[in-house]
Every structure is written in structure tokens, then in C-alpha cells.
């Protein structure tokens, strides 16, 4: 049965809470950020829980110290703060140090993209994919629903090393159902739809937008592929290349500044390195920082990543791609 949507953090923390009962190595550290399930962890495992206060730099350094002593650490805070307030601690105490000493520190950042809708740019987070992917030994995982967020625990417990888990602050519709099967962490991505010359490749909340864009265009008789990228570093590259083969174009969709090194850069890099015959359209936040108010959908439309705007630009992209194909079929050079 398809699960009801719930908060990603609670789905993940609940699995952590269950694992703590039989794994004494698990330690949870928070920077004064809570959740109902975190209350249970605090109550049931006070010896393996600590709140460092509003102090993200110390959150990371303390986590590094705990992990040096053998703990598997989950450090929990709001996404922009756990990635940016303490970026040099991430680099030095986790990134650099974990190349020499085994460290298992898992950052749980809540509030990807625009998920703190009314809080404005301080609490929204459009830079984390770029920044966290820039640290070479970090893994970056980004979930579109709570089922995926909960599944991330397996990776955290099975593999040492620093990881960033990028969670939405809002409960999002469930995309992993008995029909789709569980998200396959070893693959790192999931193909939700196949068909048409173009695939929409999305991460986090934007997967839901991609599905809506695909629905809208399917009604127009234009089928599209839809792929969820939930592992932004360690996805099965060969399997993804296989999925992309035969396509004419790819549309990347992320709640991140466009052309600033996010998932779009990842795909540009892959297309260039593999010399793929793919046209690419990048859907990302345009126009820099803004202080506008509105619903998440309204904010998305304002910065160029809303379903309506993206549907129109994908339509233009499809025309370009099919024109390209027609030209090739006619034997004309580009």
C-alpha cells in the first residue's frame, strides 16, 4: 500500500531511533533543531544525544570528535546553516580528516530549496548542491519523498565517510510505492517514466514538478521520460548513460541557482566527457536572491522553475530537439 506523505526528517529519524536501540555506536547531534521523533531519541537515548545549541561550527567539530572515537554520527540542522555556516569545518574536520582517519558523519539538512517558503532567503537553500558536491569525498543524497529519505539510513550505516542528506522541510507526495519498488540506492536514480525523445532529470522537490510537466505534455501527446536523481555523487554512471542513450535531449530540474555548478553542471560534465549527442536545458533558479513572498508554486514561477513556465520551455526545447533530429534525418549539417 502506498504510504501517506510524512515529513522526511521524521521518517529518517524514526529509522535512526530504531537503529539506536541495537547499535550503541549511533550518536545524534543537533544544532537546536527539533522534530517530534527527535524528542523520542532525546528521551530514550540521552547518552547518545546532544544539542550543541545554535552553533553549527561546533556541531561539526564535535561531530568529528565523536566520530574519531568510533561513533556513527548524525548531525542535524537546517540545510543552509549546516552547509554554509560551517563550511570550513566541513572541509577541514570532515573532508580533509576523513581522507586519513575513518569518520562516519552524516549531515541531515532540512529545508532544501524553497521548502521554508515564507522564511525568505536566509532559510531557503539554493547553493547546497553546488557546495557539497565541491567537497570531493562527501556523498550528496537528495530525496523526493520520505520513503527515499528513510532509505538513506542504509547507506549511512553501511558506508563510512561524510555525507550530506538534503531533505525537504515539507511532507511531499510519495513517489516510491509498491508499484515502483523501493529506491535503489546502489543505482542512485530511478526512472519513473520512459518514452519520448527527452527525459526530465530532477532532484528533490523538483521531481514532483517534473512529473506534473510530463503529465501536462503527455496530455498534448508529447511523452517525456522522468528520472529522479537521489544520489548526486555516487549514482551508477553506466546505468544512467544507458538510460540516456537513444534520447535527443535532457532537462535538468533543481531548486538551485542555474549555471552555478549544481546538478546542471553534473550533466554538462557527463555530456562533454562521454561525448553524448544530447541537447540540454537547465531548469534552475534565475535572477539571484529575492525577497518575494508567495506560495512555493508562486515563488517557483517567479524564478523560472514553476510547472507552468517549465512546461512552456520544455515545449520549446522539444521543438528544438525535434528540429535538430529532422535536420539530421535530412542529412543537413547543424
Amino acid at each position: 500500500m502506498t504510504q501517506k506523505p510524512r515529513a522526511m526528517r521524521d521518517a529518517l529519524l524514526e529509522r535512526i531511533w530504531m537503529a539506536m536501540a541495537h547499535d550503541e555506536r549511533i550518536f545524534v547531534v543537533t544544532a537546536d533543531f527539533g522534530s517530534p521523533v527527535l524528542d523520542r531519541i532525546r528521551a530514550d537515548f540521552p547518552e547518545r544525544f546532544v544539542n550543541v545549541g545554535i552553533a553549527e561550527q561546533n556541531l561539526i567539530n564535535v561531530s568529528a570528535g565523536l566520530s574519531l572515537e568510533g561513533y556513527t554520527v548524525f548531525a542535524y540542522a537546517i540545510a543552509p546553516f549546516i552547509t554554509m555556516r560551517c563550511f570550513e569545518q566541513l572541509r577541514v574536520s570532515l573532508g580533509l580528516l576523513s581522507t586519513v582517519r575513518p569518520l562516519n558523519v552524516n549531515l541531515i539538512g532540512v529545508g532544501a530549496g524553497y521548502s521554508y517558503v515564507v522564511s525568505g532567503p536566509t532559510h531557503q537553500c539554493y547553493e547546497d548542491i553546488t557546495l557539497m558536491r565541491s567537497l570531493p569525498n562527501f556523498q550528496v543524497l537528495s530525496s523526493a519523498d520520505h520513503v527515499t529519505a528513510a532509505a538513506f539510513l542504509d547507506r549511512c550505516l553501511q558506508e563510512s565517510g561524510p555525507k550530506y542528506l538534503r531533505l525537504d522541510a515539507q511532507p511531499l507526495p510519495v513517489v516510491y510505492t509498491p508499484e515502483t519498488g523501493a529506491p535503489d540506492l546502489a543505482r542512485g536514480f530511478h526512472v519513473h517514466r520512459r518514452g519520448g525523445p527527452v527525459a526530465l532529470v530532477a532532484t528533490g522537490y523538483m521531481l514532483h514538478s517534473a512529473l506534473r510537466v510530463a503529465d501536462a505534455l503527455a496530455r498534448d501527446g508529447q511523452p517525456l521520460g522522468v528520472i529522479d536523481m537521489f544520489d548526486l555523487c555516487r549514482f551508477d554512471r553506466a546505468a544512467l548513460l544507458h538510460e540516456l542513450s537513444g534520447l535527443s535531449g535532457v532537462v535538468t530540474m533543481e531548486e538551485a541557482f542555474r549555471s552555478r555548478g549544481g546538478m546542471d553542471a553534473l550533466f554538462f560534465d557527463m555530456i562533454a566527457r562521454e561525448d553524448l549527442p544530447l541537447k540540454i536545458l537547465n531548469v534552475g533558479v534565475e535572477g539571484g536572491y529575492r525577497f518575494e513572498l508567495g506560495s512555493r508554486e508562486e515563488l517557483h514561477e517567479a524564478v523560472g522553475i514553476g510547472v507552468e513556465g517549465v512546461t512552456a520551455s520544455v515545449q520549446r526545447f522539444l521543438a528544438k530537439v525535434s528540429g535538430h533530429n529532422a535536420a539530421l534525418a535530412d542529412g543537413f549539417a547543424e
Partner: peptide, 23 residues
Amino acid sequence: TVNGSLGHGLGVAAGTALALARK
């Protein structure tokens, strides 16, 4: 640990001391 970038050692040592106490 990694040293030289100043201001990190005390926090890491605090985490280490906490771990020694807790375990």
C-alpha cells in the same frame, strides 16, 4: 587531526572528550 586552519581543534577535542565520557 588536521591542524593549521585555526579554531577547529578545541571543538574537535570537546567532541572527543564528550565521546570518552559517554562511552
